[in-house]
Design a protein around this nucleic acid. Structure first.
Lengths: 232, 232
DNA sequence: GTGCATTTGATAGTTTTACTATCATTATTG
DNA sequence: CAATAATGATAGTAAAACTATCAAATGCAC
């Protein structure tokens, strides 16, 4: 059996669908590598064009700005993550087990019994992409125009993922009053603790490299402590 | 009795000490208002010069870049916050009570028994400054040059605050293994949950306005659940 | 395979940002 | 009062973030 899962993106994110041409797909794939290599601030469409072997103007035909490209990329990631989460949990009955898998996915830690999730999908470098999510994802919404962007549903993939997590939390403990906030806190914490671990390790209790499994212990304890403690 | 607490800043943050002249102080005070008004991305030294009634070049004599000015401003905030925390907790013996005060301070919620903390210090608009911390603070470290900046101790005030919190956590429960990570998580969560509450409320369980006290309940529950739950 | 439409390439240009440099003028201080 | 330092005023550069135009190439329809 062969199949590919294709992620459909919100049309407000682009001027021309990057998925409809080889150039478009290169913009996204190489855009990911560029952001991962030099960071969002240092990245420009000119540099990206040089990487690809095309011209700046051609990229502007697909994306109106570097910021929209960033949102496209992180949205792709959230949608991919939500798919993984659905796939990895749909056969489970214990809601705690579902949350356990969610934590592993968020941290890119393979479960012992699972076959290694592939390193690429649609030609996208998932490791580089994870790095972008850790280092740059919050810049997608931390802008002065967050409200306009939100009204175009640009953050829907992130919200959808958090919502799904929140429902799992609710399933474990229906009377818990902060499922949504706890869900977004878990996602955010997974990422900036990873960032701190790598760059400002004194803000964490983890080793700069390979601390992901320690971070998992922290998140698990945080999550299940909150759910086992009597509700407020 | 009259006294003022003066916050001394790391000299690596500036080219000329903005505290040493009226123009320098205006740059900081009006810089805060500019960032709060139009956001970090839209802000420029030219616009700031126009607000102040000076020239762009004069601002460059104080700060080498907009990014350094941002770090200066958020560092001021963290040092101010740490001072408040020390002041508000030094007479307390119960370490849980100390953490309780810390949460109030982080969220700018006045304790009933405390006299309202003033809205300004050194002529700085603390409300605007809190907004900057919520919206822009993570941009101080989410850069490609975080390591160089860190080696110049630019994030020390943030680390100092988190460390102090971590010690309070450790005092409540010495065997808890993640005091540092829990401390930075509390600080970060206080801020981005505030952001979500205001701009992407479906990611939270709080009302877009006046939800700070609900957020306090969430943080308190998260913190004390983790500390009451048996250690990992 | 020719004709038509769409995509891309190549080039050019604009506005704004993020600086740096220079020199005269105005405060400050010893 | 003289020297020194800070500021104002002006100018200039390099790069970023776009927009515009037109020709060349490519795809696709019949």
């Amino acid at each position: 059996m062969e199949y590919t899962v294709h992620i459909r993106m919100n049309a407000n994110l682009y001027l021309r669908n990057p998925d409809s041409s080889e150039l478009g797909r290169k913009i996204v794939r190489q855009g990911i590598l560029m952001f991962a290599d030099i960071g969002f601030e240092e990245a420009t469409f000119k540099k990206l064009a040089e990487r690809i072997g095309t011209k700046e103007a051609s990229i502007y035909r697909y994306f109106e700005s570097k910021h929209r490209l960033l949102i496209y990329i992180v949205d792709w990631y959230w949608q991919w993550m939500e798919y993984q989460l659905v796939y990895e949990t749909h056969n489970l009955t214990d809601p705690k087990e579902k949350l356990e898998r969610a934590l592993h996915l968020l941290l890119h830690i393979d479960l012992p019994e699972t076959i290694r999730t592939s390193d690429s999908a649609d030609g996208i470098d998932l490791k580089a992409l994870h790095g972008i999510v850790v280092h740059e994802a919050s810049k997608a919404y931390l802008t002065h125009h967050v409200t306009e962007d939100n009204s175009q549903h640009l953050f829907k993939p992130y919200k959808d993922l958090c919502n799904r997590l929140a429902r799992m939390i609710q399933d474990v403990r229906p009377q818990y009053a902060f499922a949504r906030s706890l869900a977004s806190t878990l996602v955010e914490t997974a990422h900036y603790q990873t960032f701190f671990m790598q760059h400002l390790p004194s803000l964490t209790n983890f080793e700069p490299t390979g601390g992901a499994s320690q971070l998992l212990l922290f998140l698990r304890h945080l999550l299940f402590s909150a759910l086992h403690q009597p509700a407020v």
